[in-house]
């Protein structure tokens, strides 16, 4: 099956809160993390992220692919910035060189050289923590928030009815879209089409995907006409609508939102003094 729902009810910290409270807290967490490059502060956010992950009830088995993707992504970028030294230049002006390795060859007169500096090491480490904290909190959302409540959650957070209902509608039609896709896939396979054998350059490969993309798109467009008719015929969008699902804030939700707010305000205040890299003494000592 192409479409599988990640969400299920779990005994977890996230699910013990109202989804709106969690979304607000998540936004505060996101903003707060982005205020810092100082590893010591970032450790605090990583700790919150780890606490959330370990109390989420999401098993390694069900989330393995997401974690492997994120880990690969983070490590690739951290390593890339470490190699090139790009990305951190606005945070430091001077670099303390610990070691340097020059390549035994030149390219058009330029000799590639790897500079290992205290600043680059710390920049990469900080970046890993920042991205890891944000990514792991984000990964957990589809596993933990009930898709049936997306619409009402965002409506109650102040979005207009039409946009909020659009979220519910997306959730409703993802499985339909998935089924259309597998039908088309089967229909083309039965005509000897083998997606595994795609070859050629990027454009060539996209062109060879046409037997899948064209029918699925055409079907989606044809279907959307019916969907719009069905909505119009049942008075959608004529005025403020009632949402049958109800959400209620409890004390713990208020507490979480308050904590989030304090966190973001404190972070904003602190960042006035600490928006820069922290280089531990021992690294500087190594450079001398």
């Amino acid at each position: 099956m192409l479409v599988t729902w990640r969400y299920r009810e779990r005994k977890s910290l996230i699910q013990s809160f109202d989804p709106r409270a969690w979304i607000i807290f998540f936004a505060c967490f996101l903003a707060s993390t982005l205020f810092f490059w100082d590893l010591r502060y970032l450790l605090f956010f990583t700790a919150i992220a780890l606490l959330t992950v370990f109390t989420s009830g999401v098993t390694w088995q069900e989330s393995r692919r997401a974690w492997l993707f994120i880990t690969g992504f983070i490590l690739f970028f951290a390593f890339f910035t470490f190699l090139t030294g790009r990305g951190g230049v606005e945070l430091y002006r001077v670099e303390h060189i610990i070691a340097q390795y020059a390549a035994p060859f030149t390219i058009l007169g330029w000799r590639p050289t790897l500079w290992i500096t205290a600043e680059r090491i710390m920049f990469s480490a900080s970046m890993i923590l920042r991205v890891f904290s944000i990514a792991s909190m984000t990964i957990l959302i589809p596993y933990s928030l009930n898709p049936a409540l997306y619409g009402v959650t965002f409506r109650k957070l102040g979005m207009p009815d039409k946009i909020a209902y659009g979220m519910d509608l997306t959730m409703r039609f993802i499985p339909t879209f998935g089924r259309d896709f597998s039908l088309t896939m089967d229909a083309q396979k039965a005509r000897g089409y083998e997606i595994e054998k795609l070859s050629g350059g990027l454009f060539e490969q996209v062109r060879k995907l046409a037997p899948l993309i064209v029918p699925v798109t055409i079907h989606a467009i044809m279907g959307s006409e019916d969907i719009i008719d069905a909505m119009d015929l049942r008075a959608f969008g004529i005025g403020p609508r009632t949402w049958l699902q109800e959400l209620h804030y409890r004390q713990r939700d208020i507490a979480l939102i308050t904590f989030g707010m304090i966190m973001v305000l404190t972070s904003a205040a602190l960042s006035l003094f600490t928006y820069r890299l922290w280089i531990p003494e021992f690294l500087l000592a190594l450079a001398q």
Binding site: D180, L183, T184, A187, Q188, A190, P211, P215, I218, H219
Partner: peptide, 13 residues
């Protein structure tokens, strides 16, 4: 065996 699906729009491209 050649399989013709229910709706031609699932295969025509």
């Amino acid at each position: 065996l050649g399989y013709v699906f229910q709706s031609p729009s699932h295969m025509l491209f």
